[in-house]
Write a protein that binds this DNA or RNA. Structure first.
Lengths: 227, 227
DNA sequence: GTCTATATCGGGATAGAC
DNA sequence: GTCTATCCCGATATAGAC
């Protein structure tokens, strides 16, 4: 916030100049996100985080009480935003055709995933993260997300698909597919064609007929744009 | 510590009686598999492995040179078998209809995944495993698997699907979906209905028409049974 | 072949100077 | 607010008894 130029008054000068984020707290979060996703939570050391954030290992503890607290912060950011956005899209799409709603949900969720720095959307799929006490406080958000996909999926699904997909919940099939967008990223970017392909796959998975898919895309796109 | 006097013999008596596996080496592998998948590789300690295998931490090093060597063993088992089986199924299905081939590939691969103890099929998706030097020696096998799915998928795909799925490779979409069977397991068992649902999803993803899907299942099932 | 004991190292976290 | 220095614990791996 109130950053006085590098005048060495309160606190020593930072070891490295700032990168993307302005304040050190966000730099720590950014570095942690990258490392947690790239090496796992347990596989990442606070020294590596410090190096990535451009300060010393001990300085992290001025901003966070523990390594786990960093994880908790990242987890909350990554999941909560997706859930609120998913439910918002869901209600906005009630007036549209079922397959349009599902398409919009998938597209907007993938956009959210891709917009997240360093693929932190996959954080809550890592075993060491799930095993962490920090995860328990956010696991219900994940369940909300699955539920949203199940609802949208069942609306769009043809009959034979809907009954066949009771076990497991349709959302548990759709969500991994949507989240596969994460591993398809290259260098922090994603082709819009890839997003379209995956969204189409979701519709096909629910048995939406081929002719409707293309149109659902356009409808979803414009519906999302207006809001 | 040190409250029980030791008994002499060729090697001291094991701390705990054997569980599933007969020999200690397999017990170590089994315990490691469960722990690696449940807490990540870096998040698992050799003490925990030892406890799970029913011996002392240091005794592990009679059977394996290092923790990483255990990981390498597990990685090789889990991926190699899938690749050989996938390519075998692929050639056997050349004479059948394209959608039957893809269905058979998906079903047999899921069977392999589910047959693996403790979901080790997901091992090579963990960041800390991928970051490990042990992984590099097997990453090409993973690529072979993706390639097999891409080939089978393109054969089965309708035209608009095939062109739309160039980027990313179709296999990179199909494989995560097939592997989602892992997280849908409950207590080491999986409903055959779940496998069918996912296989159907693969066919739909490739644009196979709804009427053909049911029959493809039966054909694939019987074709797999004869071999 | 498994144990006990321990060396050695690395990681998270704290204390206190500036 | 960041640093240096260090504590303390836990983790991997080794040595050697039995």
């Amino acid at each position: 916030m109130a950053q006085i130029p590098p005048r060495p008054g309160r606190g020593r000068p930072r070891l490295l100049p700032g990168k993307i984020a302005a304040n050190p707290r966000d730099q720590i979060l950014a570095a942690s996100a990258e490392l947690f996703v790239g090496r796992g939570y347990a596989g990442t050391t606070t020294r590596e985080i410090a190096e990535g954030a451009g300060l010393r290992q001990a300085s992290i503890y001025y901003h966070f009480g523990s390594k786990e607290e960093i994880l908790a912060d990242l987890l909350e950011r990554s999941v909560r935003d997706r859930v609120t956005q998913a439910e918002k899209v869901e209600t906005e799409m009630e007036q549209h055709a079922p397959e349009v709603g599902l398409c919009a949900l998938a597209v907007s969720d993938m956009s959210a995933l891709v917009a997240m720095p360093y693929n932190i959307g996959m954080l809550d799929r890592l075993p060491d993260v799930i095993a962490s006490p920090a995860y328990a406080r956010f696991s219900h958000l994940r369940a909300d997300l699955v539920a949203a996909y199940t609802r949208s999926g069942l609306r769009a699904a043809g009959e034979q698909v809907a009954t066949g997909a009771r076990e497991p919940g349709l959302g548990e099939l759709l969500l991994p597919m949507v989240e596969s967008v994460i591993s398809l990223r290259r260098e922090d970017r994603i082709e819009t064609a890839t997003v379209s392909t995956i969204a189409s796959a979701c519709l096909r998975l629910c048995g939406v007929e081929e002719e409707l898919i293309g149109q659902a895309h356009e409808s979803a796109q414009s519906a999302l744009a207006t809001h």
